[in-house]
């Protein structure tokens, strides 16, 4: 689509209003005449995004090139106004973050966390969706029960899990001890804590996957299965050659969404372990939050640097994703 304009569009900086710039006057007029309503329709979003995302983003990038912290930014306290006194330091912050092993440790764990969470969530969601995509008694009941983790606000569930996980007084360990197995240090041991946060995130994420994939399954025409059965295809062959291709589009979307959400999953880590024990469950976004709001003096420049780096990673991911979408013939 939009073949005749695609080159101009690709060169544009990423802002809808910039596109027409640089063309001949006549071209601009003609473009305005044909496209004015489309541009008018997208104007509110472009405007809002420009002001509340564009400007802070530019400022964030700028802050990452300074030594801004709580002590030297401008602030007003009652009658006193203190002027900003931070200065431009170039790429110093990036050198500092990238040469610090902490960044790489966080990155490795964040990637691991994302991959494990998304793949486990997807597998479980697919399995449950397949089970629910049949006719049997109690289906509605199971569906309602399984959707519950999604229906409860995330921060409530995370607190609930923290309560269950408490090593000394939580129900999980009381049950285990009752069963003769020793207490498990759910949130007290680096490895267990990693498993625990993954468990909770999977628990939170499965219903969404299940529901979305179930919708995908239901949109696959039943005749396909009947025809395959007639041809003597086994259950596995039917799954492999009809179900999976049929779910391709919806899977791509939910995996993309789930990856982004998990990569940026702040509440689970922050509310469950606060990045602990030690710093073993800290992911990139919680680390950036810590730099800006937990440590003191608050390191605004450092946090912005982390933010820019995280964004760069996600952009790379999105580029790869878009390329793979294009290969399948989806273009925009």
């Amino acid at each position: 689509m939009a073949v005749h304009t695609s080159r101009t569009a690709a060169q544009a900086a990423g802002d809808g209003t910039d596109v027409a710039r640089g063309r001949g006057r006549g071209g601009l007029k003609r473009a305005l005449a044909t496209h004015w309503y489309a541009w008018a329709m997208v104007a509110p979003v472009v405007l809002v995004l420009g002001v509340i995302i564009g400007w802070p983003l530019v400022r964030g990038v700028y802050l990452s090139l300074t030594d801004a912290n709580e002590r030297n930014v401008a602030r007003t306290i009652g009658a006193n106004t203190i002027e900003a006194s931070y200065s431009f330091v170039g790429l110093d912050n990036y050198t500092a973050v990238l040469s610090d092993p902490v960044f790489w440790q966080r990155l490795v764990w964040t990637v691991l966390w994302t991959v494990v969470c998304v793949s486990v969530t997807f597998t479980l969601g697919l399995a449950l969706a397949n089970m629910l995509n049949r006719n049997f008694r109690g289906r509605a009941f199971y569906r309602m029960a399984l959707i519950l983790p999604w229906a409860v606000p995330g921060f409530v569930s995370v607190f609930a899990w923290r309560f269950l996980f408490n090593r000394d007084n939580g129900i999980l360990n009381k049950v285990l001890e009752g069963g003769g197995i020793g207490a498990i240090p759910w949130l007290d041991d680096p490895t267990w804590a990693k498993l625990s946060v993954i468990t909770v995130n999977v628990w939170l994420g499965v219903p969404f996957m299940m529901v979305a994939l179930l919708g995908g399954l239901q949109s696959i025409p039943g005749e396909l299965y009947e025809a395959a059965e007639m041809d003597g295809a086994s259950a596995w062959q039917r799954f492999r050659h009809i179900t999976l291709p049929g779910l391709r589009a919806v899977s791509m979307t939910v995996i993309l969404l789930s990856t982004i959400w998990t990569f940026n999953m702040f509440p689970v880590i922050f509310l469950l372990t606060r990045g602990g024990p030690g710093d073993s469950t800290e992911i990139l976004v919680t680390q950036a939050f810590r730099e800006a709001f937990v440590s003191s003096p608050r390191d605004f420049a450092g946090s912005a640097t982390w933010g820019v780096l995280i964004l760069a990673l996600l952009m790379i991911f999105a580029l790869v994703y878009r390329r793979s979408l294009r290969k399948q013939g989806e273009v925009w």
Binding site: N264, F266, L284, A288, A292, A304, W306, G307, V308, A318
Partner: peptide
């Protein structure tokens, strides 16, 4: 896919 990490500080200051 913007992490809140990139916007939170500028927005906070703003």
């Amino acid at each position: 896919m913007f992490p809140m990490a990139i916007l939170i500080v500028p927005l906070y200051n703003l």
